[in-house]
Design a protein around this nucleic acid. Structure first.
Length: 195
DNA sequence: CATAGGATCGCCT
DNA sequence: GGCGATCCTATGT
């Protein structure tokens, strides 16, 4: 069921970001299995992308995770509050990553609601990268640089039929500092799900 | 060691 | 749509 290592080795991170729409992000944290259909992603295209943490080949203790081979998690703290979850893609030493920005809750919705301190499902429950991590129990201290073939965080193909016509493409959020690269069409939103 | 700022969120008006 | 929360990371002295 888990997407195999080979899936993450593709060299086109933009293509992979789009392909991850409709896949299912699963976690098993504190004995709770929770999951959601990936509905929004952004590609961060390594050393040539000014919006990427690895732009210009920058390598620090935090970003070293991005240089792992595809199929690892890159989870970091943003704004001092939120963990943000990325999928590392491509071969080792090529720091490409896909940020998961939104999911539609699937399994363990009771646990998800509790983690999000909400009482009922709503369209805004998991529509942001910080919310995704909160909902699935992903924490930058526990879940950074894990293999996505392990038993804590992984991705499955749920067999959801992604209608290409319902994918909205646009510029990435919150990367104004990236100059012209802020305009690249590297954000993908799944509007509807069939299956 | 000091400091500025961030791939966000939720609550306020 | 504006703003404060909150703390780690990166960079510079």
């Amino acid at each position: 069921m888990k997407l195999p290592s080979g899936y993450f080795q593709g060299t086109d991170v933009v293509l992979l970001a789009r392909d991850l729409l409709g896949k299912v992000l699963v976690t098993c944290v504190d004995g709770h299995r929770t999951s959601g259909i990936i509905t929004e992603t952004e590609a961060y295209a390594g050393v040539t992308d000014r919006a990427s943490h690895a732009y210009g080949g920058r390598r620090t203790p935090r970003t070293s995770t991005m240089y792992l081979p595809g199929g690892h998690s890159y989870v970091y703290l943003c704004y001092g509050i939120h963990s943000l979850f990325n999928v590392v893609t491509g071969p080792a030493h090529v720091p490409h990553a896909v940020l998961v920005r939104a999911i539609r809750p699937l399994e363990g919705t009771g646990v998800i609601l509790h983690r999000r301190r909400a009482s009922k499902l709503s369209p805004t429950l998991c529509n942001g990268p910080g919310k995704v991590c909160s909902a699935l129990g992903i924490d930058y201290r526990r879940h950074d640089s894990l293999s996505l073939l392990g038993d804590e965080v992984w991705i499955e193909d749920g067999g959801y039929d992604v209608n290409r016509d319902t994918v909205t493409v646009g510029p990435r959020i919150g990367v104004d500092y990236a100059g012209d690269d802020a305009l690249l069409p590297y954000r993908f939103v799944l509007d509807t799900i069939r299956g």
